[in-house]
Amino acid sequence: MSANAVSDEQQTQWIEVCDKNALDSDTGVCALINGKQIAVFYVGKLDEVFAIDNYDPIGKANVLSRGIIGTQGEHICVASPLYKEHYDLRTGECLENSDIRVTAYAVKIENGKVLIAV
């Protein structure tokens, strides 16, 4: 099982979100963590989970968890379901506009549970 650490792992507090089997391969769900909406994606081929903000800063709606997952060159990303901008799932960077980014969160699977660091 892998973890995509963005912040310093030592300071992070891992919060259990859901069972791993609540995630369908190559799709996303939205988790509510401390009042924040976080999109969690599971890429079956890599057996890896990713987490970024659910809020689409361009479309201004809480929808990113409902986008299509894919790759653009080396980037693993989600395409916003509203206007199709790509957000890198590891960094939260918007590939079409470097001024825009969403927060990416460390996330891992342990003992069949999905854990997010906030």
């Binding site: 979100v17 859901c18 609540a22 769900v29 939205c30 988790a31 509510l32 963590i33 909406q37 969690v40 809020y55 709606a61 809480n62």
Partner: peptide, 11 residues
Amino acid sequence: HFVNSDETDSN
């Protein structure tokens, strides 16, 4: 809307 809550989108 949420995988871990029955709340709805507050936005």
